[in-house]
Computed example of a mutant assay.
Amino acid sequence: MRRYISAAFIFLFSINILYSDAIFIGVASEFPPYQFNVEGKVTGFDVDVANLLFFKMGIDIIFVQDEWDRVFNMLRAGTIDAIVGIENNEIRRIYFEFSKAYYTREDVLFVRADNTEIKTLDDLTNKIITGDRHSYIELDWIEEGIINKFRIRQTESKSDSM
């Protein structure tokens, strides 16, 4: 269940470079080590990748950091030019064009260490599971026809899910 993560750039991105001194790139607030904030400074692996990429292209960037849903909707509304580190999936390809992936990661389920009754996926049947919207696990479960076995409570962020 390995998934690909990549930066999303929509067509407006290339138009904006012609008419602006900088482009605006959205990042999530609470997704360490990829995107987070330390003492008011936007940081993380995705931020480092974007900084290096756009520095090499000679393009100034301004990071816009907020809760994930807000960042996602800003890109859909065209108030920012790109999102760095967005998961590429079928739902998102309806709205955005994606670059090639620059890293991969695997989705996993976390269970509290003191929980001795959850050993398999079937043990989660009728349990409440938290996760951020459009997660790959949720999409895989839809595809496998098992999504209705679980009660998923969508959260604002991965941090809230934890």
Rank of each mutant, 00 (worst) to 15 (best):
Y102D: 13
V47E: 02
D21P: 08
I61L: 04
F11D: 15
F72L: 14
F98R: 03
L109R: 10
A8D: 01
M74H: 12
R151T: 14
V111Q: 07
D81W: 00
V47M: 03
S161E: 05
F72E: 09
A8R: 00
F63H: 05
T104W: 12
L121W: 08
I137H: 09
D48I: 05
D48R: 13
D114K: 12
N89G: 00
I152M: 03
R92C: 04
M1Y: 06
F96L: 07
E97P: 04
N51K: 12
A22W: 13
T104M: 10
L75K: 01
S159Y: 11
D107N: 15
L109M: 14
D140G: 06
D66Q: 12
A8Q: 01
F24M: 08
F63S: 00
I137L: 14
E138T: 10
D132K: 02
L75Y: 04
K127V: 11
A113Q: 15
V27Y: 02
R112T: 12
D81E: 08
D107S: 15
M57K: 10
S159I: 07
R112F: 11
V49P: 00
I25R: 00
Y95P: 10
G44E: 13
D122H: 09
R133I: 13
I23K: 00
D48F: 07
E143N: 12
I5G: 01
E67G: 04
P32A: 12
F24R: 07
N37P: 02
N51I: 06
D107W: 11
Y103S: 05
D48S: 12
D123M: 11
I83L: 00
R151V: 15
K100Y: 14
V64M: 08
Y103I: 07
W141E: 01
S159K: 06
S135E: 05
A7Y: 11
A113P: 02
A77C: 06
M1R: 04
Q65T: 02
H134M: 06
G58C: 02
I91Q: 09
F150Y: 15
R70E: 08
V108N: 07
K127I: 08
T79Q: 11
D60T: 02
F13V: 01
S135R: 01
S20N: 15
L53D: 08
F72N: 13
E144H: 13
R112K: 15
V49W: 13
A50D: 03
P32W: 03
Y34M: 06
H134Q: 13
F72M: 13
S157K: 03
D132E: 15
V64T: 08
W68G: 06
T79W: 11
N51A: 00
F55Q: 14
R112I: 12
R76T: 10
L53W: 14
I129D: 11
D60K: 15
R112Q: 14
D123S: 15
D160G: 06
G78S: 02
F11Q: 15
I147S: 10
F9P: 01
I142V: 11
A7R: 07
Q154P: 11
S20C: 09
K100P: 12
A7F: 11
I91P: 07
V84N: 01
I25H: 01
P32F: 04
S6W: 05
S6E: 08
S157G: 09
G78Y: 03
F150L: 01
V27K: 00
F9M: 09
N51Q: 10
D69T: 05
L75N: 00
I94V: 08
W141M: 11
Q35W: 07
